[in-house]
Design a protein around this nucleic acid. Structure first.
Lengths: 166, 166
DNA sequence: GGAGGTGCGCAATAAAATTTCGCTCAATCG
DNA sequence: CGATTGAGCGAAATTTTATTGCGCACCTCC
């Protein structure tokens, strides 16, 4: 496997586990059409090879009192690598920042943040983010609602591409 | 539980499953300090009550040939509810769009997209997104790198708040 | 101070995960 | 060609987990 690409069964495994990460190995094996032992071996291999980075429960922030979700568009004064890295490090330390992506173009970073309420977020925004070293500007937008949230891979697109190549 | 809030054990369960969604119930029970049967009952209850929306394997898009990730900032011509909904519906149908959030402010939606390569993305951008009905403008930014990606709830913040209130 | 409700844990059972091992297929090598 | 070797499968056996069925303890509210 180290040398080869994934086969159909591997891709099915990934698709199934992406859709339901708690599926039992027995059920998974049944769905992809092999028996349990080789199925488990494949899953382990996929994990070790980095195709699967981990498994997580989707915990609903709103239900736990994090009513506010915000996207923050950040521009820095310096885009030198050391300064970019320094900013990323701060983002990792701020618990309200859940995602931090470096972008090309005029915006340097987009952050996805959560907060219990608007006032908590404002405190973070003015006290931490905007006032952090090297931050030139921050534009924020509240999330009004989420129409789709399915991180990961569109396996239907992947299969279509492979079919074409074949 | 239907009436009450979560207790310490419930929050620990959520934190553990957010961190590792495939943990066995036996291990989970050990970590939160109760025996396996009541632990499993609590997990089921949390699932049914909507605190846990699901479980997913993190499948690495790059490893599967989706080299390009893009944030797209979309503005519509009409923000009437029917038009907003119509746009959201299209996003749900586009497999390259993995997330779609409605925002306040001048940008109406932010989309997180993936694609096998730049050319595929451009095809989608010009052929589907930009040319979709009611779309006024789309600004895109390539993701250069991701410094943090931990969707969900910052349980440390949650615990700190609860401690204060107590 | 008992009835009803909530939630725990022990014990038993069912199911799943994991290990072991022999088989098959196919590519490779004499 | 036929033997050899490696990869990968699956049946069977074993170890762990998940799940069910109770009974007990602890509250709360009459």
């Amino acid at each position: 496997m180290a040398t080869t690409r994934l086969d159909d069964i591997d891709r099915k495994i990934l698709a199934e586990l992406q859709a339901d990460g708690r599926m039992t190995n027995v059920e998974l094996a049944r769905r992809v059409g092999i028996s349990a032992p080789p199925c488990l071996r494949r899953v382990r291999t996929l994990e070790e090879a980095g195709f699967i980075d981990g498994y997580h429960a989707d915990v609903n922030p709103r239900e736990l009192g994090f009513e506010v979700q915000v996207f923050a568009m950040v521009r820095l004064q310096s885009q030198a690598e050391a300064d970019l890295s320094a900013f990323e490090m701060r983002c990792r330390e701020w618990p309200l920042v859940r995602e931090c992506h470096m972008l090309n173009g005029e915006i340097d970073f987009v952050l996805k943040c959560v907060a219990p309420d608007l006032s908590s977020f404002q405190t973070f925004l003015t006290g931490d983010l905007t006032s952090a070293e090297n931050v030139a500007s921050v534009k924020t937008s509240l999330v009004i609602r989420c129409a789709k949230d399915e991180p990961g891979v569109p396996f239907d697109v992947l299969e279509a591409r492979l079919a074409k190549r074949a």
